[in-house]
């Protein structure tokens, strides 16, 4: 599924990494611990988290995540947003909780 379709269906607010927006995503991982994300996040996955620091982008880039959704209206730290632009990792913010976001993604068929 195209990331841009998901973004518009869930009314996600694009924050950074707009160059990666046409990417296809293939699943979702939810979590806030870097080591677990490093192990469990798969290439092309959307990552839902409440972590806002630079390491979210570092892990996303290393694991080639499809994009990041910051739940509960979180927004990335300034250096994280910069890094996301550089690595072309799309980052969105949503007022919804991780659970609500996951439910909506499942309804969309992801």
């Amino acid at each position: 599924m195209k990331l841009s379709e998901i973004a518009s269906a869930l009314e996600l607010k694009p924050i950074a990494g707009a160059d990666g927006m046409n990417r296809e995503v293939n699943g979702c991982y939810i979590g806030d611990l870097m080591s677990l994300a490093m192990s469990n996040l798969e290439e092309g996955n959307l990552w839902i988290t409440i972590q806002t620091n630079l390491n979210v982008i570092a892990v996303s880039a290393l694991k080639e995540a499809g994009g990041v959704i910051l739940a509960d209206a979180m927004t990335p730290d300034a250096n994280a947003a910069e890094k996301a632009d550089e690595e072309e990792i799309p980052v969105f913010s949503s007022p919804l909780s991780a659970y609500q976001l996951a439910k909506r993604l499942a309804e969309l068929g992801l």
């Binding site: 080591s35 192990s39 972590q51």
Partner: peptide, 15 residues
């Protein structure tokens, strides 16, 4: 608080 300290570092390296 930054999302580290899960105690998975060395186990993940070994794995």
């Amino acid at each position: 608080e930054l999302g580290f300290g899960a105690g998975m570092g060395l186990p993940n390296i070994k794995k």
